[in-house]
């Protein structure tokens, strides 16, 4: 165990594994949408760190995983942005997706 922690690559990869576990715990236990989004992002960045640590050899990280991680960071942001807007919109409609306030009934009228 100690020699694993002494090696930079496996130290960061194992930290990534711990982050995935932590995010997974948060995702199960938390109810508030923002907390779940944070947990989701912790899982994601944990996977990135695991990926980067596992592909670390000597002087640096393999460029192919680096490019994939940058792509992953942007995709995670896209999902976070949509989920955050969705959570706010849901709260504005009273947390009830079946019916909406009067404001939105007008919307439906004008849709026709």
């Amino acid at each position: 165990m100690m020699e694993l922690l002494a090696d930079r690559a496996s130290l960061f990869a194992l930290t990534g594994a711990a982050l995935v576990a932590l995010g997974f715990y948060g995702f199960i236990i938390q109810r508030a949408p923002i907390r779940r989004l944070i947990a989701f992002n912790v899982i994601g960045s944990g996977i990135f760190l695991l990926f980067g640590g596992a592909s670390y050899v000597g002087g640096g990280v393999d460029p192919v995983p680096q490019a994939l991680i940058i792509t992953g960071i942007v995709v995670a942001l896209a999902l976070t942005a949509f989920a955050a807007t969705l959570a706010v919109r849901l709260a504005e409609s009273g947390g009830d997706d079946a019916d909406d306030d009067g404001d939105d009934d007008e919307d439906r009228e004008s849709d026709r």
């Binding site: 930079r8 960045s45 990135f48 980067g52 640096g60 990280v61 991680i69 995670a76 942001l77």
Partner: peptide, 24 residues
Amino acid sequence: LILGAVDVALAEAAIGAGVTGVLL
């Protein structure tokens, strides 16, 4: 940065921490 992946470090600081933080 320590792992030598400066491109990822820039993306993480700017997008992962910055933009995501502002969004949240």
